[in-house]
Amino acid sequence: MAAAERSVFVTVGTTKFDALVERVDSLELLRILRSKGYSKLVIQKGNGSYVPHVVVPAGQAKATTEGIDVEYFDYSPSLAAYISSAALVISHAGSGSIFESLTAGVPLLVVPNPLLMDNHQQELGATLAAGGHLVCAAPDELLNAVRSFDGSRLVPYSKGSPAGMVAAINRQMGFPGAGAGRG
């Protein structure tokens, strides 16, 4: 990758989230990205039925549009690599993608999927947004959220640790002196 490349990675993980893919399939988004100094947009669109056809010509998975290099794909086992090399991640609010991005220190904008039962994506997104670790937006607010996004104002997330739970389980089981496992 070129050093000057600033990539935006959109990811829905293993889910379907057409409302998000549809919102990022937008020339206006590309113009906003360009005005903010981004040069590339990669969309991991997942299992949904919506296929991008605005930011790339219909039937094409790759193109340069409005000065932005755009590509999309369904899924990749190496989403972590896309996340860690991105300058901005726009993600569904699944815990995997969220903590992958936060612990990689990549600026993150999450869009909870409003179709999920008793929307716990909304809960996680809102809690982390309240802590200043990410920006959380509804699908309809996405373009404005990208426009006003300022990664420098985010609060770095301190990675958690299983050590406390491990110690409590060991105590409960009668292994009080046990340490953590070997990796």
Partner: peptide, 19 residues
């Protein structure tokens, strides 16, 4: 399943498997 499986396996990473 999904994120929950990942959490459980992350916890197991740190447990002493011999115990």
């Amino acid at each position: 399943s999904g994120g929950h499986t990942a959490e459980m396996l992350t916890l197991m990473d740190s447990m002493d498997k011999s115990l």
